[in-house]
Every structure is written in structure tokens, then in C-alpha cells.
């Protein structure tokens, strides 16, 4: 199968604050990979380091290596090309409110100067069908995206990412701001999509991670504490795992807010 993503000795600083410390993970192709951890542990930073969005932050410094489908995205000039096939879905549904449903999905292909006219119509329909939204919006493709409900907006964002025909989909807590019913729909969607696309899912919900992913990593204070099969990582209840981590951190002399990660 090979690897979709390989992160090696990755460190990220925001100014003088170290957000990621020597992180290494390996994401196999064609699966859902979960990044777990409490808030502020660096999950989102790790996700954004994979598609280089992290560089948008002021005063950021990145060290180490990120390979996506074998290409070093920070050094290899082919990186741009590879990242063009990496989609992202955010925590809060963020369709462009002033664009129509159709234009929201079509924006990626249009920016790349790919597909026009009929072909683009087909691509938009395909993406909306994949995202399970087509039946609900087929009659109002020209209406503004802001008219959709929160759950529909998130599925629209998934369609927007799918229209890139991505090999890799990064999802940053995609159900965190949705009600349980809509969250369940998104989970179903993740399961379906993972048959064709590698998905990296950031979540703080261990049960969700177990429902969707087989492998994953547990982050704590910028470090990978454990990586591998979730059944191993979560052999104890997740809350117990976190309590143990916090306790260990206290024993090491920190107060839980130390800037330097204190774990071995």
C-alpha cells in the first residue's frame, strides 16, 4: 500500500513557543488516521504542517520533514503540485457566504484553470453526490451557501475539498460544531470516503476516533506520546490516559502550563 504521509522529526515554533516537538508519524494509504489529544496539544498545528497552512501564522518556524505521497513538501518544488491534491475541512463550516452553492464547490477547479462548462458541472455534481448533499441542493445550486444549515454547510465544505479530486483529506474536528445527528452523517461520510481517499482526522473525541480509524497518534503538549493501532492506544479509557499524562507532567515539575514539553 505505501505511505500517504510521513512526518519525521517535525518541530514547529510560534515565535519562541514550541508547538510541536520532534513529531514523527506515518499515515498508511487508504485509511482513516486519527490524531488525538486534549485541546492545545498541537493537533491542529500538526495537521496544518502537513499542507503548509502553518506558514500563514506570524513568526512561525518549521524544522524537520513532511513527505506527502513521497514528496518532501517543504523542500521539493513538486510539493505545490502534490498539495494541490490535498483537501482540507475545518472545525467550523466555512463555505464562502457570498458565493453560490455551485461556485463554492467549483472554486478549487476554477482556481486551477481546470475543467470548464459541462465538465465542471459534472465535477460539481460528483463532488456534491459524494458529500451526500446533491439531493438537497440540486434545485438551488445558484442560491448563496449561507442559506444552508450548519450540517449542510459542512457537507458543502467536504464537497469543496472533494472537487480537488484529493488523494488526501485533512479534517480538523469536522463535527465539533455540529449537533449529534449531523455529526453522525459526517461520520458516515468519512467512512465511505476512506475507501478511496486517505483521511487524517483530528479529534478530541476518542470514541469517534475508534469508530472511524484503526490507526492514529496521541499528542500531548506538542509531542507524540503514542502512535499505532488505536486499540492499543485506547486499551485504557481515554480519560484515564489523559489523567496519567497530566499527573506525569506535574511530577516532572511542571504546572501543566510550562512552555517546554516535559514528557520523556
Amino acid at each position: 500500500m505505501g505511505e500517504a504521509v510521513r512526518v519525521k522529526d517535525l518541530s514547529v515554533w510560534y515565535g519562541s513557543q514550541k508547538a510541536l516537538d520532534n513529531v514523527s508519524i506515518t499515515v498508511p494509504r487508504g485509511s482513516v488516521y486519527a490524531i488525538l489529544g486534549p485541546s492545545g496539544c498541537g493537533k491542529s498545528t500538526l495537521l496544518r504542517a502537513i499542507n503548509k497552512l502553518v506558514l500563514l501564522r506570524d513568526g512561525v518556524r518549521v524544522e524537520g520533514e513532511v513527505r506527502v505521497f513521497g514528496v518532501d513538501v517543504y523542500r521539493d518544488p513538486r510539493g505545490e503540485e502534490v498539495l494541490a491534491r490535498v483537501g482540507m475541512v475545518f472545525q467550523t463550516p466555512n463555505p464562502f457566504p457570498h458565493l453560490s452553492i455551485y461556485d463554492n464547490v467549483a472554486i478549487g477547479p476554477r482556481l486551477r484553470g481546470q475543467s470548464k462548462g459541462r465538465e465542471l458541472d459534472e465535477l460539481v455534481r460528483w463532488a456534491l453526490e459524494k458529500a451526500g448533499l446533491w439531493e438537497e441542493v440540486r434545485d438551488r445550486l445558484r442560491k448563496p451557501a449561507s442559506e444552508l444549515s450548519g450540517g449542510q454547510q459542512q457537507r458543502l465544505c467536504i464537497a469543496r475539498a472533494l472537487a480537488l479530486r484529493p488523494g488526501l483529506l485533512l479534517m480538523d474536528e469536522p463535527t465539533a460544531n455540529l449537533d449529534p445527528l449531523n455529526a453522525a452523517r459526517i461520520e458516515e461520510l468519512v467512512k465511505e470516503l476512506s475507501r478511496e481517499i486517505t483521511i487524517i482526522l483530528v479529534t478530541h473525541d476518542a470514541e469517534q476516533a475508534q469508530r472511524l480509524a484503526r490507526r492514529g497518534a496521541l499528542l500531548f503538549m506538542g509531542r507524540v506520546v503514542e502512535e499505532g493501532l488505536l486499540s492499543g492506544i485506547l486499551s485504557r479509557p481515554y480519560s484515564k490516559v489523559l489523567q496519567a499524562l497530566v499527573a506525569k507532567c506535574r511530577v516532572a515539575g511542571g504546572d501543566g502550563e510550562a512552555t517546554e514539553p516535559l514528557l520523556p
Partner: peptide, 20 residues
């Protein structure tokens, strides 16, 4: 900021981001 991130993730260049 989330819209700016979305535009980058879609591969929009400076002028294209500005237009949106």
C-alpha cells in the same frame, strides 16, 4: 482567518485570494 486558510487549502494565489 478560517476563510483565508480555506483559500490557501484550495490553492488560491495572492490575487485570487484577494478577489474572493
Amino acid at each position: 482567518f478560517t476563510y483565508v486558510e480555506a483559500l490557501y487549502s484550495l490553492g488560491a494565489k495572492g490575487f485570487e485570494r484577494a478577489r474572493v
